[in-house]
C-alpha cells in the first residue's frame, strides 16, 4: 500500500521505465482475467446464506461505489490542499520550512495508517468523514513534498531567462515553474492515489464501507470465500486506479519533456 517511495523516486531522473506502448494494456487485461476467474470460482462454490448475503452483485456494486467515493473525494481534497501548500512552501522566503516538511513526510510514513484512522475515530466517531480525514492526512504529504521539490528543482537558468525576458513573478510561476513541476506533481499524486485506494480498505474498520468490509466480515464470520473475494476486488481496484493514474500521467505531462 505504501507505494510512496516508488513514485517519489520516479520523480527523480532515472532511466528506468516500467512498461510502455502495448504493455499499457497488460494491466486491464490481467484485471479482467482475474475477475473472470474469481467469478467462475465463486460460481462453483455452494454458498451458505451468510455468504450469499455478502456475495451478490448489489452488495459488491455498493461496496465498489463506497470504496471509489472515498478514494476520489480524498484525492480531490489532497489536490486542493497539497498543491497550493507545496507551491507556498517552495517560495524562496519559505525555504526554512523545507527540511521540516521533508522530515515530516519521511516520518509520517512510519505512522501506521490504521493507528491514524482509529485515533480519528476517538475525535469524530465512526463513518465516512472520519475515514476521509484519516486518508487525506495520510495522502497529503507525498503530494505536498513532490510539489515543493518539483518547483524547487526547476533549473535556475530557466527562471533567470524568464525573468530576463520580462515575465512577472506570477507569470514565471504559472508558465514556467508549475508547468515544469507537473511531472513531479503527477508522480506524487499517483503515489497518494495508490496510497488512498489501499487505505480506503481500512475505512471498513471505522464503518466507512468499501471492499475492506468484505475482507473483515469474511474473517469475522469465518467465511473464507467472502474474504478472498474482498481481497481480490481490493487488489483489482488498486491496480485499476494505479493504471488510470499512469494514463493520466502520460496524458497530462507537458510535451517536449
Amino acid at each position: 500500500m505504501t507505494a510512496e517511495t516508488l513514485r517519489a523516486a520516479a520523480a527523480q531522473p532515472t532511466n528506468l521505465r516500467y512498461g510502455k506502448g502495448l504493455r499499457k494494456l497488460i494491466t486491464p487485461v490481467a484485471i479482467a482475467i482475474v475477475l473472470a476467474a474469481l467469478y467462475v470460482w465463486v460460481g462453483t462454490l455452494q454458498l451458505d446464506s451468510i455468504e450469499q448475503r455478502s456475495l451478490n452483485s448489489a452488495v459488491i456494486i455498493q461496496k465498489a461505489i463506497e470504496h471509489l467515493r472515498l478514494t476520489v473525494v480524498a484525492t480531490a481534497l489532497v489536490v486542493v490542499i497539497a498543491i497550493p501548500l507545496g507551491v507556498v512552501a517552495s517560495r524562496a522566503k519559505n525555504r526554512l520550512i523545507t527540511p521540516f516538511i521533508l522530515g515530516t513526510a519521511n516520518l509520517g510514513q512510519a505512522v501506521p495508517a490504521i493507528g491514524l484512522l482509529v485515533l480519528c475515530t476517538f475525535v469524530m466517531g465512526v463513518g465516512f468523514q472520519t475515514a476521509l480525514v484519516g486518508l487525506v492526512a495520510y495522502a497529503v504529504l507525498p503530494v505536498l513534498r513532490n510539489t515543493m521539490v518539483g518547483v524547487q528543482q526547476v533549473d535556475p537558468a530557466l527562471i533567470e531567462a524568464a525573468r530576463g525576458m520580462g515575465m512577472t513573478k506570477g507569470q514565471v510561476l504559472r508558465r514556467v515553474e508549475l508547468k515544469l513541476a507537473v511531472p513531479a506533481i503527477l508522480a506524487g499524486l499517483r503515489t497518494s492515489l495508490v496510497l488512498t485506494v489501499g487505505m480506503a480498505t481500512m475505512g471498513a474498520f471505522v464503518a466507512a464501507g468499501g471492499f475492506g468490509e468484505l475482507i473483515i466480515n469474511g474473517l469475522k464470520l469465518q467465511r473464507m470465500p467472502v474474504t478472498i473475494v474482498g481481497g481480490v476486488l481490493t487488489a483489482s481496484i488498486a491496480f485499476l486506479v494505479d493504471w488510470l493514474g499512469g494514463l493520466a500521467e502520460d496524458l497530462l505531462k507537458p510535451r517536449g519533456m
Binding site: A157, E160, A161, A162, G164, M165, G166, T168, V176, G256
Partner: peptide
C-alpha cells in the same frame, strides 16, 4: 518587468523552456 521585455537577454545556459516548442519560445515576448 516592462523594461526587460524591451531588452534582449541571452545567457550561457540558453534557458529555452523545454515544455514549449521552438516557435512558442521565440513568440513568448
Amino acid at each position: 518587468d516592462e523594461l526587460r521585455r524591451h531588452i534582449g537577454y541571452v545567457i550561457q545556459q540558453i534557458g529555452l523552456f523545454p515544455h514549449l516548442t521552438i516557435g512558442e519560445n521565440v513568440g513568448l515576448v
